[in-house]
């Protein structure tokens, strides 16, 4: 009998955690309120009290809480990261999601009972890399970067020593996570070092005779015509040119959505499906969680007759970046 993947949903604060639990998430992932996690945004994340309340709330409902400590500490701030791991162990969380090899070793030796998941920020895209983290630190699950085609994903799952979690919905990282320094090149802060990409303090909006413009640390990211929807100026979703007309040289504003391939993911043994978006609102988390819960349950009941229902797709597209969706690298022509 095929196992239905765990639905892993994001929470940037307690209300979103409750929304995820109430709407059918099997697990919720959170971060502490500092740069130890890859969504280090102002006003977001969990202090110690909220984290404890969140764990209680989820556990009462029989759901799990995972904590992301998934950025890369440097010599001057190393103790902050080890303190985060120690706090996580004391909180009774269900797993900690980590990327830094030195920190993984610290956690594995200091807290041998703590369940470790490999973060997408560790950039493990093949079974040899997964073997490394499994043999050295005893990781139990890995989140894969959004770069594999389906054939590559099936091969990796078949040869992996650990459970595989894949992204199912949300804003799309075009680059291999953990290997992208575009943001620090322009702003000085990156996901690896600071837990942020294209940080808000570097964003500037301008109204000009040519139209509305968005800048990141002074660099022009995009220029919008009258009536054209303007998105957050993430570096990889700007319009640039190589010679001539500007185009989305890296990626359009769009969201990943795996509803179309859910039965295949289930059939090939994906252990968990992750929703991106700890920076999003509780209402967003509730809607996305509900849609994916319904889809997963439908798929579980009868995978052969599974079809994407229009209302799920419409609900998700309304919440998507650019109001549209893609299968990303899973779909070979995207590459």
């Amino acid at each position: 009998m095929t196992r239905i993947p765990e639905l892993v949903c994001p929470a940037g604060a307690l209300p979103a955690l409750k929304a995820a639990v109430d709407n059918g998430a099997d697990a919720v992932y959170i971060g502490f309120r500092d740069d130890t996690n890859a969504r280090n945004f102002p006003g977001l994340n969990f202090g110690p009290d909220d984290a404890r309340k969140g764990v209680e709330y989820a556990h009462r409902a029989g759901k799990k809480v995972l904590l992301a400590v998934n950025t890369y500490p440097q010599p001057h701030n190393w103790p902050i990261w080890t303190a985060a791991v120690d706090r996580a162990a004391a909180l009774g969380l269900d797993a900690v999601i980590m990327a830094d090899p030195g920190l993984l070793r610290y956690a594995a030796s200091r807290h041998p009972d703590l369940r470790l998941h490999l973060s997408v920020q560790a950039s493990a895209t093949n079974h040899r890399a997964l073997e490394f983290y499994h043999q050295r630190f005893g990781i139990r699950r890995a989140v894969l970067p959004r770069v594999l085609s389906l054939q590559q994903l099936w091969h990796t799952i078949a040869h992996s020593p650990v459970e595989i979690e894949v992204f199912g919905y949300g804003s799309l990282c075009v680059m291999v996570e953990g290997r992208c320094a575009l943001s620090s090149y322009i702003t000085g802060r990156s996901p690896n070092g600071s837990g942020v990409c294209s940080p808000a303090e570097a964003v500037r909006w301008e109204e000009t005779p040519q139209g509305r413009q968005s800048r990141l640390n002074g660099v022009l990211i995009d220029r919008y015509g009258p009536g054209e929807a303007a998105g957050y100026p993430t570096l990889c979703k700007g319009r640039y040119h190589t010679e001539g007309r500007p185009y989305y040289a890296i990626e359009e504003p769009t969201s990943l959505n795996v509803l179309d391939i859910l039965p295949e993911l289930v059939q090939h043994g994906v252990a968990a499906i992750k929703v991106e978006g700890r920076q999003r609102s509780p209402a967003y988390v509730a809607s996305v969680t509900r849609a994916l819960r319904t889809a997963l349950d439908t798929c579980a009941a009868d995978p052969r007759r599974y079809q994407v229902r229009e209302e799920w797709a419409a609900a998700l597209d309304r919440l998507s970046e650019g109001q549209c969706h893609t299968l990303g690298a899973y779909h070979r022509p995207w590459q």
Partner: peptide
């Protein structure tokens, strides 16, 4: 991704004799 002394020590223990820091 070698950003700290613990990772550097881990790599040395595995046989690394040289490292090139991440460009950032």
């Amino acid at each position: 991704n070698c950003y700290n002394g613990e990772t550097l020590a881990l790599l040395a223990g595995l046989g690394a004799s040289r490292w090139v820091p991440p460009v950032e």
